[in-house]
Design a protein around this nucleic acid. Structure first.
Lengths: 237, 237
DNA sequence: GGAAACGTTCTGTCTAGCGGAATGCCGTTT
DNA sequence: AAACGGCATTCCGCTAGACAGAACGTTTCC
């Protein structure tokens, strides 16, 4: 569907960096004719997916925000996840993030910031590569990726990574399941490397896995496998 | 642009209540032919504005969430507003919300929940009527609505409403401005009526107006008018 | 085991979106 | 003050692509 694909192209021209774009900028980024954009923009504005500012520039509209909120809530989640995430962040003093899979990427769905001034900068709505970083690895593992380290992750229910996605960042992640053992997303505890080292992550494995188990139970699914993994992770390495 | 209007119609078929919809449900809500929806859905899914679940049902996709996050951040806001809102919520022990105008409606852009178990239920992304409730009144006033109570609001920079939008809810709101005295949005302190009464709201006027002034200064605009209003509100009524 | 409901595919018709040129509007430069 | 350049906007003839509806296949529910 050509017209619609182009409309989506227009929306995707917007990034976090630019709060608004002119017609010419949209044309440059999308490669579309200005007349085409103008026509499409009319409908997008009517639907409030796009907004026209007083100076004639465009920005993403409130309908996008409304839909985004629907997406976020379609994971049941907020009432179950946020208390778990808050507790984990208080125990660790580090940031806690919940990622979900989005095709070949992953999306940050919720985030609790650490109180530390130096922060590992990811925000709700950010899109990251699927197979990189501890959260990405765990998502990939429980979406059925073959080989290592994914086989091990499926056994131990967690993965520690240091400088995998970002050289200055380290973290540990565990999966959260919902009805029918379906993977909902992954809970990640992460922070800057000087502070978040291997010893710290080792100590945090158990609280993290217990948080993942608690969230899983919150979604009405049995979490004994994750609880077993929590005990093993704390005992062993 | 017919095709695009229909695509938006499909997206708008989704509400907070339903986490996913079947093809037939979308057809019923939009009045579109199923073949049309299927064609449009193809493009929407390609653009990740829509997602196909394993059971064949549809839900809003991650791209909507990404765009929503861009919208939220396009108000500069998060670094300026959240600390102000958090402080105000701690001072008052009630929920603090930031609304922005969205056409003839208003959107809840940020929200800090009170610690109380009984909560006044609005969430980020919710869409409310523009001209109702204290937040709505203030938005309308500073968007140029004529007559009362809007003239008074423009003089006093705040408005108290009790049971206006919702019979069980009361609140007080003040505007936040950005570069060029442009209205950005409105800060609302609100809660359930048994707890949030006239006396309480009177006491909260000053902290609220000071928070609005602080946010306005954070956006690089002079806030002396709001500060004057804060002193007056505390002295008078 | 029958029927209803649902998702999906297909096709001829015709509309509605397309590209590109042309116009008009500012703000800047010489 | 005039000319220029960059920008948004309008217009139009052509044709590709979206449309409605029927037909088909599959699953679900009595």
């Amino acid at each position: 569907m050509a017209a619609l694909d182009r409309a989506i192209l227009i929306l995707n021209a917007f990034t976090t960096a630019d709060r608004s774009l002119s017609l010419a900028e949209i044309a440059a980024r999308t490669g579309l004719y200005k007349s085409t954009i103008l026509r499409l923009a009319g409908s997008l504005i009517r639907g409030q997916l796009l907004e026209r500012l007083d100076d004639g520039r465009y920005r993403v509209g409130p309908a996008a925000f409304r839909l985004g909120a629907i997406y976020q809530r379609s994971f049941a989640s907020i009432d179950v996840l946020l208390p778990v995430m808050r507790d984990l962040s208080e125990q660790s003093n580090e940031s806690v993030t919940f990622y979900v899979r989005a095709g070949e990427m992953r999306t940050c769905l919720y985030r609790i910031e650490s109180k530390h001034p130096i922060r590992y900068m990811v925000r709700e709505g950010d899109v990251l590569p699927l197979r990189v970083g501890s959260g990405g690895r765990v998502l990939a593992a429980f979406s059925g990726t073959e080989g290592e380290p994914y086989e091990t992750i499926r056994r131990t229910y967690h993965f520690v990574s240091i400088g995998d996605r970002d050289p200055e960042t380290a973290g540990v992640s565990a999966p959260v399941f919902g009805p029918g053992r379906a993977l909902i997303g992954v809970l990640t505890l992460a922070g800057p490397r000087p502070r978040v080292d291997l010893a710290f992550l080792d100590r945090m494995k158990r609280p993290l896995l217990e948080a993942a188990a608690r969230a899983t139970r919150g979604f009405g699914e049995d979490a004994s496998a994750i609880e077993d993994a929590a005990r093993l992770a704390a005992g062993a390495d």
